[in-house]
Design a binder for these strands. Structure first.
Length: 469
RNA sequence: AGCGGGGUGGAGCAGUCUGGAGUGCUCGUCGGGCCCAUAACCCGAAGGUCGUGUGGUUCAAAUCCCACCCCCGCUACCA
């Protein structure tokens, strides 16, 4: 029997600043999904990376006196390290400056051109003579350049290559209709359907105003527009020979919805690739009720958190606290993390493991039919994973942990020394550890090791309580 | 403005799609039990007119429909 393929991608991050918990959240979820699918025996490929071209990178690099390449070389390492500190283990960390990716993008442009979807035209934008750069309406403050207020913004025209996005309106609407799971959750799909119905403009996909990008294969004066470049990372990074494409699920934040739900399928269709099964849009994290932003000074680095609380605690918190599948926003706070750590990981899970290990060390255990384990709602947990409801699957697992604690209480094995009761508990804990392994890989492995040994002994405390005061 | 999300005991959330006694979870408060365990675990109690309309549909509404109020996000060539 051939294994079922499971390919998960995350958005690739734009490394013009250091990684924060918002980036981390998405990567954690992707890693949990990847680990879960490995656990149930799928052939898994997990891709993440950095999006390294574009004007903003070029500018950010110039500001600190580095070449764009030096700049992204250094920052992409910070992203890699952050993920490593959280035990996030992608099968490939792709960078859009990777040679194989650049080659693929150029080939794709040619394919789209051959299919008649690319033509030369004129791009009109708001040009600031002070910056010598284009801005979008949104960048402008009261119709003026944020850096050169008072200076005139000119409407300038520039030669550019366009992608015939307008041609794909019907194709996209059909796609959303026939494949309701293409954009999840459904609220987001409705949003897109409404906006696409309003009509689509052709898209400028080349630039001449700066040069940090992939050379446009049809015209040496141009470079490829960053989104065209960035999106195809999912194909270039899909295994050694792109054998994992199409993706089963592509995770992204709601800021990237339009690009992934509209441009992406149109580009793929034009270039003759299959479409991903699902693009899954999650919400944003706020931090103590505020937007995460540099200017507010509330940017928390993933490495700081994993260093202070451990990778497992952060992973657990992120998955349990926020209803991922709803696509809604969630609020991050260290206090909430500590509360959940103390109450759930230390008191419920840690204490259960610890008390049962102590009992199993003192008294003997005897294999028997496990009535306790029947109370574990395994089917529902699997169902929740299928639906990306990580918080709900954790709820079910922890409900069973409560059942186990209750069982210890009621059966009083410290009095009865009942070997069968202890067996039921030991086996149940092994199952709990197995199910938790995608979320808290380090701790789960420790538990499994401890409870699979010939002689179970009470080990180190798994989750030491965090004193607050 | 348009579109989307939210308003549920003291706090934070599920529950709403597929209507059925205000059900549940974490924390907090109060009382009890246990002594295996990380001062952990278990049981019980108090506390809510489920944003407003004393609106509509229904035998029955937190759940469906309508109106209004209050929060928050998104609005495309910017990553």
């Amino acid at each position: 029997m051939t294994k079922k393929k499971f390919y998960v991608t995350t958005a690739i991050d734009y490394p013009n600043a250091e990684p924060h918990i918002g980036h981390a959240y998405q990567k954690i979820v992707a890693d949990v999904l990847a680990r879960w699918h490995k656990l149930i025996g799928d052939d898994v490929w997990f891709l993440t990376g950095t999006d390294e071209h574009g004007k903003k990178i070029q500018e950010a690099a110039e500001k600190v006196g580095k070449t764009p390449k030096q700049f992204v070389d250094e920052l992409s390492v910070k992203f890699k390290e952050a993920w490593k500190s959280l035990n996030i283990e992608p099968d490939r960390f792709i960078r859009t400056t990777d040679k194989d990716h650049e080659k693929l993008v150029q080939e794709v442009i040619k394919k789209c051109y051959e299919n008649g979807d690319i033509y030369k035209g004129e791009y009109e934008g708001c040009y600031c003579t002070g910056c010598e750069a284009y801005y979008t309406e949104k960048d402008l403050v009261d119709g003026e350049c944020p850096y050169h207020p008072g200076k005139k913004i000119q409407k300038l025209k520039e030669e550019s290559y366009f992608f015939k996005l307008s041609k794909y309106q019907k194709f996209l609407l059909d796609l959303y209709k026939k494949n309701p799971e293409f954009v999840l959750p459904k609220e987001r799909r409705n949003e897109i359907v409404n906006r696409v119905k309003e009509g689509l403009k052709d898209l400028s996909i080349s630039r001449t105003s700066f040069n940090w990008g992939i050379p446009f294969p049809l015209d040496k004066k141009h470079i490829v527009y960053v989104w065209f470049d960035a999106l195809f990372n999912y194909v270039s990074g899909a295994g050694k020979n792109q054998e994992y494409w199409p993706a089963n699920v592509q995770l992204l934040g709601k800021d990237n919805l339009w690009f992934h739900a509209v441009y992406w399928p149109a580009f793929l269709k034009s270039a003759g690739y299959e479409l991903p099964k699902t693009i899954f849009v999650h919400g944003f994290l706020t931090c103590n009720g505020q937007k995460i932003s540099k200017s507010l000074g509330n940017v928390i680095s993933p490495k700081y958190l994993s260093g202070k609380y451990g990778a497992d605690a952060v992973r657990y918190f992120m998955c349990r606290q926020f209803p991922f599948s709803e696509g809604s926003d969630g609020d991050f706070s260290e206090k909430a993390l500590i509360d959940r750590y103390n109450n759930e990981l230390a008191d419920k899970l840690g204490n259960l493991v610890s008390r049962v290990a102590a009992l199993a060390e003192k008294y003997r255990i005897e294999k028997c039919e496990n009535k306790l384990l029947k109370k574990l709602k395994l089917k529902e947990i699997e169902k929740h994973f299928e639906n990306y409801e990580l918080d709900k699957s954790l709820n079910e697992i922890f409900a069973f942990i409560d059942v186990c604690n209750e069982y210890v209480q009621n059966k009083k094995p410290w009095e009865t020394h009942d070997a069968k009761v202890l067996y039921e508990l030991v086996e149940s804990i092994r199952e709990i550890a197995r199910l938790l392994s995608p979320f808290i890989p380090e701790s789960a492995e420790k538990i499994l090791k401890q409870f699979s040994a010939k002689k179970i002994i009470k080990g180190e405390i798994l989750f030491k309580k965090i004193e607050t005061k």
